[in-house]
Every structure is written in structure tokens, then in C-alpha cells.
Amino acid sequence: MRVLALHPEKCTGCLRCELACSYMQTGEFKPAKSVIRVSPFEGHTSYSPYTCTQCAEGWCMTACPVGAITINAAGAKDVVDDRCVGCKLCTIACPYGTMFYDPDTRKAFKCDLCGGAPACADACPTAAITYEDTATTDWIGDFARERTARLLVVG
């Protein structure tokens, strides 16, 4: 299956992925509604994007009491708006913090891989996000550990 591979060492924190994602979600450039989010590390000097890894366990699907989370054609876990009742159980179940709740629509939302053509990967100017056929993994754990340790050395 093709997944979003994240290469944090290439990220410069420009947040263009958030703009592209929010445009796909809302039709506007509105990073508050992006489901890919860039976090800083090592003070303000390192950045990494993070989004749903489409994990095999599918914690969100398991937790959903109304079966509103299904797998779409691209292989992504996806929220069916018509079924979602906005109970937020999925946001609690997800151990990665990549399930979101929209108070405007009262529904959960998450990365659906843009149905097979992820906008974030196309928007990233440094190829820190690529869409490739590879096993999904914890993309930023080592990076986060290293950059956090480094900050302690510098500080």
C-alpha cells in the first residue's frame, strides 16, 4: 500500500503542507483545519510534519461505535460524514493524536490520503513528505529523540 512517508530531517517548517491539506479539507487556505501538522523540535530550529500513519491496528475504526470509519479506495482510514455522530471516541482511541474533531460540522475528520493523490506530498518543496509504496512506521520518533537530546547539549 502507498503511504505518506515522512522525512523530518528535510523539513524546514514552511507549513506549505498545512495550506495544501486545509485547502483539500475546506476549499480555503485555513491551516487550523489541516490534518497534517508541523511541530517544532530543538527550540525553534527543527521541524517535522506529522499525520495519520494509516496504522494496521486502526484504533479509530475499532473504537467507532457507529462504524463511521471505513477504508477508502486508496487504503486510508476515512470518516463517512453521514454516519459520524461526533462522539469523539476515535480522537481518544488514536494513540498518535491524528484524529480531529471539527466543532463547526460536529464530525471527526482525518487524513484520507486525498483519495490517492495527497496534496501535502505534492506541496512540500523539499520532499520531506513523499507518497510511496512502503511499510508504514513511526516516522519521526528517532528524529524527535535526537533533536531533543541535542537541544539539551546546546542549552
Binding site: 485547502y23 483519495g115 496534496a119
Partner: peptide
Amino acid sequence: MPTAASSRQKRPAVA
């Protein structure tokens, strides 16, 4: 970058 129109839009377009 693909455009919103190339994927299913989840919310109605802004008036």
C-alpha cells in the same frame, strides 16, 4: 499539488 476538485470535497464550497 492536486486540487480540491480532483478529490472528494468533504464540505460545501465557500459561497
